[in-house]
Simulated scan of single mutants.
Amino acid sequence: MKPFKLKIPSITDNLRIVESFIDQAREELKFDDDIYGNIMIAVTESVNNAIIHGNKNNKDKNVHLSLVMEDDNISFTVEDEGIGFNFLDLPDPTAPENIDKPGGRGIFLIKHLADEVRFTQEGKRVEIIFYLNS
């Protein structure tokens, strides 16, 4: 199956385009309502991170989003054009010293909503996988 692809400039208003992309994919691929909410939150959060943290809100840099549906999973890949980050050294947002900090919850949320999360290319690319019929 040919993957669905989207490229957007790094502007947070473009999250609406991402939401429409997910809605269109849901209509065409008929994935379950059970995972739809998790997909919407995890993927838009990941794109938001790519815009703000990866591309530093530089509208001349793009965020690339693609999805592939296989027999047993649906996989979204979000890639920014930034310098990456150390995804192995993320503070735990639930730790007492981090509870009052405004950042650091996005990746934590993504990891709890998806079945698998894989970072590659020094953190510039994240693959978010949801199992079907689980």
Results as ranks from 00 to 15, higher is better:
115 D>Y: 12
116 E>C: 10
82 G>H: 00
76 F>V: 04
62 N>L: 15
77 T>P: 05
72 D>C: 11
99 I>Y: 07
88 L>A: 03
88 L>N: 08
102 P>W: 01
54 G>S: 06
75 S>Y: 02
109 L>Y: 14
130 F>W: 07
125 R>S: 13
119 F>K: 02
80 D>S: 01
102 P>G: 05
128 I>W: 07
76 F>A: 15
66 S>K: 15
80 D>K: 01
60 D>M: 06
76 F>N: 01
131 Y>Q: 09
79 E>N: 04
101 K>R: 09
85 F>I: 00
126 V>Y: 00
69 M>W: 03
115 D>M: 08
111 K>A: 15
89 D>F: 01
61 K>D: 12
132 L>Y: 09
111 K>G: 11
59 K>C: 14
90 L>S: 00
56 K>I: 11
51 I>N: 03
97 E>S: 15
119 F>Y: 10
58 N>A: 05
122 E>W: 07
91 P>I: 07
72 D>N: 14
49 N>A: 12
101 K>Y: 10
50 A>I: 04
58 N>I: 09
98 N>Y: 14
120 T>L: 09
102 P>A: 10
90 L>D: 00
122 E>F: 05
128 I>T: 02
72 D>F: 15
91 P>W: 15
90 L>I: 06
130 F>Q: 07
127 E>T: 11
77 T>E: 08
127 E>Y: 03
70 E>S: 15
89 D>R: 04
127 E>S: 13
104 G>H: 10
76 F>Y: 05
69 M>D: 11
91 P>T: 04
121 Q>R: 14
109 L>I: 14
75 S>P: 00
96 P>I: 09
82 G>V: 00
78 V>P: 00
93 P>K: 04
66 S>Q: 14
87 F>N: 03
95 A>I: 01
128 I>Q: 06
66 S>Y: 14
92 D>V: 08
57 N>M: 13
126 V>A: 06
78 V>I: 12
57 N>Y: 13
49 N>L: 01
93 P>E: 03
130 F>E: 04
75 S>Q: 10
50 A>R: 03
132 L>Q: 13
121 Q>W: 01
84 G>T: 11
110 I>Y: 02
114 A>Q: 10
96 P>T: 07
79 E>G: 05
57 N>T: 14
125 R>A: 12
127 E>D: 08
66 S>N: 14
78 V>C: 04
92 D>N: 13
107 I>G: 01
83 I>C: 04
113 L>Y: 10
113 L>C: 15
58 N>T: 08
50 A>L: 07
131 Y>M: 11
132 L>R: 10
100 D>L: 12
71 D>G: 09
109 L>E: 13
